[in-house]
C-alpha cells in the first residue's frame, strides 16, 4: 500500500526582507495510512512549516511532497484547493471555526463546498459526527457560545465530515486545559482506531506525544529522531 505522505529532500525557504530564512533544510519523511503521528519540536523548529507542506497550504521550495498520490509542487491553486477539500481535514490550534455559522453549519460547510452529498445525506452525516464528538445539545449554537474544548470538538467533526484520508492538527491542545486536551487527544485516537483515519499533529506537549503511535522530532529545520512513541 503506498504511503499517504511521501516527503523527499524538502527545503522550504521564506524571504524575510533582504534575508532568506530556511525553515526546512532537506527533510525526508514517509507516513503510512492509518498512522497516528506526532511531529514534535521546539517553537521555530519547522514543525508547522512541515505540516503546511503536508496540508497543501504551502509548497516546498525544492524537493517533493506527495500527498495521497499527488505531487503538490506540480499543482496549481485550484488543484491544491480541491486536494485539501477532498483528502485532508484540518484541526487548528485556535479552532478557526466560522463565527457566523452555528455548530451544524460549521461541520456541514466542507460538504457544501464539495457539493456532492444530498441535503439528507449531509444532515445525517453531520448530525452523526456531532453526536460522536458529544455536542448534540449544542447543534445550533454559535462558536462564541461554546467552550474551548467544545470548539475543538466541532473542529474535529468538521475535519472528519468529508471522510478525508488524512487529518492534520496543528498543536490541537495548545489552547486547552490539560484535562480537555487529554479528552481531545483521546477522541482523535479513538477516531484513528475506529475509522483508520491518518492523523498527523504537531505538538510540544509531552502528554500528547505520549498518545502518539509515532513521534517525529524536528529541530532547526531537520528531522533529528524518528520512531515509535515511548
Amino acid at each position: 500500500m503506498p504511503p499517504i505522505v511521501q516527503i523527499t529532500n524538502v527545503v522550504k525557504e521564506y524571504p524575510l526582507g533582504k534575508l532568506v530564512v530556511r525553515a526546512l533544510r532537506g527533510v525526508d519523511l514517509t507516513i503510512e495510512k492509518g498512522e497516528f503521528t506526532a511531529i514534535a519540536g521546539p517553537s521555530g523548529s519547522g514543525k508547522t512549516t512541515l505540516l503546511n507542506l503536508i496540508g497543501c497550504v504551502d509548497v516546498p521550495t525544492t524537493g517533493d511532497v506527495i500527498v495521497d498520490g499527488h505531487a503538490t509542487a506540480r499543482l496549481d491553486d485550484k488543484a491544491l484547493t480541491k486536494l485539501r477539500l477532498h483528502h485532508i481535514g484540518f484541526i487548528f490550534q485556535s479552532f478557526n471555526l466560522i463565527n457566523v455559522l452555528d455548530v451544524f453549519q460549521n461541520v456541514e460547510f466542507p460538504l457544501l463546498l464539495q457539493g456532492t452529498a444530498s441535503p439528507a445525506e449531509r444532515k445525517a452525516r453531520v448530525e452523526a459526527l456531532i453526536e460522536r464528538v458529544g455536542l448534540k445539545a449544542q447543534l445550533h449554537q454559535r462558536p462564541n457560545e461554546l467552550s474551548g474544548g467544545q470548539r475543538q470538538r466541532v473542529a474535529i467533526a468538521r475535519a472528519l465530515v468529508t471522510n478525508p484520508s488524512l487529518i492534520l492538527a496543528d498543536e490541537p491542545t495548545a489552547n486547552l486545559d490539560s484535562k480537555t486536551g487529554a479528552d481531545i487527544i483521546a477522541l482523535m485516537h479513538e477516531l484513528n482506531q475506529t475509522q483508520k483515519t491518518t492523523f498527523i499533529f504537531s505538538t510540544h506537549d509531552s502528554m500528547v506525544m505520549a498518545a502518539a503511535q509515532r513521534i517525529v522530532r524536528i529541530a532547526d529545520g531537520k528531522i533529528v529522531t524518528e520512531g515509535a512513541a515511548g
Binding site: T81, K82, H86
Partner: peptide, 16 residues
C-alpha cells in the same frame, strides 16, 4: 484574514 485563510484551507476556492 484568519477567517478567509481558514475557509481557503478547508477547500473554499478564490472564486467562492
Amino acid at each position: 484574514i484568519n477567517e478567509i485563510g481558514t475557509m481557503r484551507a478547508i477547500g473554499t476556492t478564490r472564486g467562492q
